[in-house]
Every structure is written in C-alpha cells, then in structure tokens.
Amino acid sequence: MSSKLRAVCAVGLALIVGLAGCGKPKAKPEAANNKRTIVFVFKLVGIPYSNACQKGAVQAAKDLGINVEFTGPAKGGDVAGQIRIIENQISRGVDAIVISPNDPNSVKPVIDKAMAKGVKVFTWDSDAPDTKRIFYVAAADDVGIGSDIMDQLAKDMGGKGKVGIMSGSQGALNLNQHVDGVYKALKKYPDIKLAKPILYNNDQPQLAQSGMSGLLQAHPDLGGIACVSSPGPPGAARAVIASGKTGKVKIWGLSLPSENRRYLKDGVVNGLILWDPGKLTYLTAKLVNDYLDDVKPTDGMEVENIGKLSVSDDGVIIMPGVVITKENVDQFDF
C-alpha cells in the first residue's frame, strides 16, 4: 500500500520536473510594452536607505521612458537570496541588471553567466571588481568612507582622546571595509586611542543604544565614536543624551539625515558622511540606459544636478559625496 502511494508521488514529481523540461520558452514579458527593463537588485529591501534609492529609480523610469524595477532579499546579509534573485532575473530575460552585491565573490559566477547570456550587468553602491560587470557607480569607495569619518571625528576631537567604533553586522563586507578605513585613518593620529571592544548593532537601533551605553560605562573618558552603519549615529546619540554627555562625546557616522535631523540640530551628532542614495540610483539608471544606447561614460563628464564624475579605467564611476552637518541638514529630504 504505502509503496504504491509513494510511487504515485514520485510520478507526480517526475511529471512536474518533466513538464518543466519540455516546456518551450515563451515571449519575453517586456515584449508586451516594448519598453527596456532595468532591474536594481538591492542588498536588502524594506529599509530607509533602499527606499531612498527606489525614489531615484522611479524618477529615472519616468524621465527616461523605461521600466525600472527593484528587488532584493528581505533579510540582512542574505547572500544566497540575492543570487537566487539574480538567477531569476536572468531567466526572465531583462535588458540589464544592476546589483549592489552583499558579497563580491559570491556573485561572480552568476554575473559572468548573465553576461554570457546577453544580460548586461552593472554594479552600484557596492562593487564586485573581479567579475565581468560593465561598470560600477559609487559615491565613494568603501574604505575611503571609513577614513573620512575618522578624519572628521579627529578634527572635532582636537586630535586626541579615546575613540570607539560601531558597525552593523559582523558579516557585512562593506561595513568591515568601512571599519578598515577607520583603522587606517586612526594611524595618522598617535594621540587617539581605540576604545575596545568594537560594537556591532546588527542593524538594530536598540542594540546600537545599549551597546553605546555599555561603551560609555567601560570608557568614561570616551571622546568620540565613529559609526559606519545607519542605526549607529542615532543610537549612539540616544545613549549619549541619556548619560548627560552631550558635546563631550563626538559622533560622526554614515547615516541618513532624516534619522538624525534632531540630533544634528541639538549638537549631539556632529556630522554625517553620505551621498544622496536617490541621486546615486538615478545617475546609475541614466548611465546604464545610455550604455545600452551605446553612449559610454567618460572621465570628467558633467551631469546635471550631480556634478563632475570621475571615471577610472577599471570602470569605477565616482559621484561626489556630501558632508552633512547641522548647517546644511535641511537641504536633504531623505
């Protein structure tokens, strides 16, 4: 009895796989409206940063008259999920895929495969340098951002004191590179000492705050903190306010202005290093669209509303970033 039933199931399974194998490829979905489709694959969807990017993508779709879609894993650091999504887009046969890889090595096989199948692949926000991707659009390099944060912090600390570092998850490559940047810059300031341990907030505001509170207890003489992921500065600010150390502990970091507006104005957070994610995505969509029309980006080209781009030989396109302080925070609406 039981083995018969199992046989039925096995036949069912075989049927499914078999049907799948025999099926014939149908027309591309885009054929319906004949528009070009560019898909952005985020590191993670459903967070403010990706949202700000999506606004730029929507605007670009409108201005350029193309389809721009966005997708990405729903949980942080989901490298496998991201590959799965890219595979999906390849079988869908879109015109171009723009990726912000969670990990540069992991996407190599799938990027090379996409290129071989005629789907153009680009990266933005984070790079995958050793792949066949066509170009990479960034606001700054990952290590450079860390150094910039540390330099600004050192200036505000007067070049001496104790400094802490707060990152997001221990597994995130770009964050680890930011931290490397902070270390690198730290070497220039012999009078600044590192306060251990390095805090990891796992991208959760609560952990950012409690971690910072702990660090303030462990190092009562802490002079500043460099935060390399977005929940960092507001979380650190709340901890600093709660312990009445506003102004004594300087906070610089990578975060969105909307999350920090109040803290910047109150002088708890000293400044942010960032770029406009919407503009970055808009620019990327435009450059990719141009590329598909056979117009290639050139070094030093001026782009309206954005500024002068630097384009290097290995296909890295850098858009100028911004330093946000309480003076200019109201100019940014993301």
């Binding site: 194998g21 496998a80 079988s91």
Partner: peptide, 18 residues
C-alpha cells in the same frame, strides 16, 4: 510567461539545493 523555460527552471531550483 517564461515560467516553463527549460534550463532556467533548474537554475532557479538549484538555488534551493542546500
């Protein structure tokens, strides 16, 4: 559309191997 595209479906299923 495209759901039955032969090699593609196995590529997608393959992501679920582990």
């Amino acid at each position: 559309p495209n759901f039955l595209d032969g090699p593609g479906i196995l590529d997608d299923v393959k992501q679920y191997a582990s």
